[in-house]
Design a protein around this nucleic acid. Structure first.
Lengths: 341, 341
DNA sequence: TTCTCTACTGTGAACGCTCACAGATGCATG
DNA sequence: CATGCATCTGTGAGCGTTCACAGTAGAGAA
């Protein structure tokens, strides 16, 4: 029976050593880089490993090394915002794969409720993972401080706001992306450019608004607070904000909306108000989410390099675990021109 | 320094025993259910645990018990289909949380490429996880057989197709959901009811089509193969299929589309063809994805109980790990009436 | 009283691995 | 020829836990 066969006690390093005619120590050395091992011994061990189907017991290894060779992907969102965000999927997938390439499993942790937060922190602080990939958008997240205090290597996705602790992070250049979009709107002849912001307790929200302001100034357009409407990244808030803008400033000819989801809502609002896009009002989004392709007109937007963000997060975290100091990595964005602007 | 403090060697069971004035054995017993422990001893141990901040070292425990107290969430999709599926997010999140409630971490594994498949199987077969939550839609997936052969407890999401092995699974009642929808279309007076199917190498695709066929027969409508157009769950395929249907059978007055994403595409196709929904053609979707709310008209669809599917998957897997035989769990769906039908 | 049974407690031995160290070998150097 | 050094190898100890077992105390039965 194959079931019975695979159920028998798996080979240990001892079995391999006996099979290869060497000592445990030599096998262990082969397993860990092969330094100070003669070619003959290494060959014998490799063959023995193949014959016995040996796979290292990570628990035994971890017990003595004190490392777990695993990493947590920690989501500290009270809302389910992130799970609805298509970018989040890309991030999670790419991180998983980047880690898998180094044979490091990813533990998915969700700390929505206070109870989950306690549980997960306990787990992490107990040293059951070597490091944490942190996705926490909101300002002053206590988890960030706790992890830092516990001395656990952390790399955040996006600059953690309201933190005194020095935390490494990887982020897209939100400000520069916003600049690109607003410059693009300006270049196409628009002069009354409004914006719908993201939540201003998130780095993206803050930075994109800053980029918008800077570019208006740079282009010599007057700063006009009535052209700024707050949103919370949700579709509905985009719709509301767009309506509010139309009311306050009916003469706008362009809107930079800080997320595609909100831009979708804005497109609807404009359609209902009888404004044509892009003829009457140009609309620029942010994220290049799949939805940006299915709107009518399709959405001109800013692409964030999620694949690179993920690989950089993993790289930075592993470096951090290896003892390097925390670092910030900012990656460039890209303007994607479609029909809406 | 708090950093220094938290960096010092964590408390072991030994420290707790000394602090509580008992032996290791007694502490261990308290940790594992507290049987055969006097109330006084238990109180002393609990207090000592609190004072020392002791957290069990899972590696040491696993080393001797042979169990890892962790579970893999394995995705074997060549395509990135699942990561674009909003349902997948719900599934992953709910599974994570259901497991977290039992203090069992979830390891996310993606086996898209052959290399990833090998790596992950090696990891799982080495006994590094106690069980696997499997998401694998396509027929005859070799991973399913491998896992079964290795004797690893597995629970699949959706009935695994083309498997001789007896695998436990949890699924929504796709067939019954399809029946509900078609009955609903019939009840609203439609008599030329077409369907856009899902991929027919997935359980959902097969079952939903079967439900469609059964209900037509039940209602005394003729079986007409020209009313059946294949899709692959993608938005584009829904659009194509709807266009093909219009050409082959211009007189259709309703379409049951096997997924919301495809239904979105179909709505577009109908809009372009100048057909009004629901006046000329009623459209029913499947999934109740977030997108179903943002279409115009909003989409009548079938809701799958993803929360329950997730908790049942976890419950079933834990039971399986505890030694129970594999079981199939089928959960009821629900018709969600909106504007499109 | 003596025996048995139950409830509880402590102890040594694992689990499979890495690490530090000691020992061995070969080769170049003084 | 002795010495040093680099390369390679084996051994014992120990990581923190659970498990099996031996042992103790107290209650109840004979």
């Amino acid at each position: 029976m194959s079931t019975a066969a695979s159920r028998r006690r798996p080979a240990t390093i001892h079995d391999v050593a006996r099979e290869a005619g060497v000592s445990r120590g030599t096998v262990s050395r082969v397993l860990n880089g092969g330094h100070y091992v003669s070619p003959t011994a290494k060959a014998a061990v490799d063959a023995a490993i193949r014959r016995t189907g040996y796979v290292v017991n990570r628990h035994a290894r971890s017990l003595i090394t004190g490392k777990s060779d695993s990493v947590a992907f920690l989501l500290t969102e009270p809302q389910e915002r992130f799970f609805e965000d298509p970018n989040f999927n890309v991030l999670l997938r790419a991180c998983t794969q980047a880690l898998a390439a180094q044979d490091i499993p990813l533990l998915l942790m969700i700390a929505g409720t206070e109870d989950e937060r306690r549980r997960n922190l306990r787990y992490i602080e107990a040293g059951h993972v070597d490091g944490v990939l942190l996705v926490s958008s909101h300002s002053g997240d206590p988890v960030v401080a706790r992890l830092h205090e516990a001395g656990v290597p952390v790399v955040a996705c996006g600059k953690p706001l309201g933190q005194t602790a020095k935390i490494g992070y990887v982020a897209a250049d939100d400000r520069d992306g916003a600049r690109d979009m607003v410059r693009h709107l300006y270049a196409s002849g628009r002069r009354r450019i409004a914006t719908v912001t993201g939540p201003l307790d998130t780095p993206g929200g803050v930075e994109r608004l800053a980029g918008y302001r800077e570019t208006l100034a740079e282009c010599g357009l007057p700063a006009d607070e009535t052209l700024i409407a707050p949103g919370d990244y949700s579709r509905a808030s985009g719709e509301d904000a767009a309506r509010a803008l139309l009311e306050r400033a009916p003469d706008i000819d362009a809107v930079f909306v800080a997320s595609d989801l909100m831009a979708q809502g804005a497109l609807d609002a404009f359609a209902r108000a009888g404004r044509r896009v892009p003829e009457d009002i140009a609309v620029g989004g942010f994220d290049d989410s799949p939805a940006a392709l299915s709107t009518r007109p399709s959405l001109t937007t800013i692409r964030q390099p999620w694949d690179r963000i993920s690989t950089e997060m993993v790289r930075t975290l592993l470096a951090r675990i290896a003892g390097e100091e925390p670092a910030a990595v900012i990656l460039p964005t890209e303007l994607v021109r479609r029909e809406s602007a």
